[in-house]
Amino acid sequence: MRQDFIKFPLHLIVHPFDSFWDMKYEGKGKLRVTLTILLLVVISMILKNQFAGFLVNYNDPRQLNSITQLFTVIFPFFLWCLSNWAITTLMDGEGKFKEIMMATGYALVPIVIIYTPMVVASRFMAEEETAFYYLMMSVASIWFIALLFVGIMTVHQYTVLKTIVTMLLTVVVMGIVVFLGTLVLSMIQQITEFFINIYRELIFRT
């Protein structure tokens, strides 16, 4: 338990190459850990938006919504995993969907461990010191992207260049998925509308 939930993720963020290898070939990663990390990311996002210090918090408190926050993390996460899986299947990636999910999830750990303390720290910052807050936020993002990069590279056994290309393509595929999704939704809506109209027509005629 402790090994899975604390030691391995913390080891992973500083030794990504070894750890992602272990995750893929030694069966060290766990899906339930990934989901827990995801939940923690959502919580830290909510905490950041709600409780970050006045000097760094530019959110309108009337418009904060935890459910929306939840979806803005969960939805892109699965969209990314799906798109990455779709594109790497075509590009001889060795990763399974589960592995992609785990690599992405574990890469999010820096966000959890940086955001929450920084939210607390930001409440004790004056305006000149907020630069430090923004610095740490950027560190979290860069760290996440670096881990994601290593993770994708290891999971699929890609070269560096191929990883970069795949990640960019994944973003494009995410756009396509969203586009197709909206298209399908609107078509379903129109089809249902069509059948409802036929039904109404029949009801009123007979």
Binding site: F54, L55, F124, A126, E127, E128
Partner: peptide
């Protein structure tokens, strides 16, 4: 300052208070 959403003023007051 917080009620008036004046971050500069707030920062000065906060620094002194801290």
């Amino acid at each position: 300052f917080k009620l008036g959403m004046d971050r500069d003023g707030y920062s000065v007051a906060f620094k002194r208070y801290r």
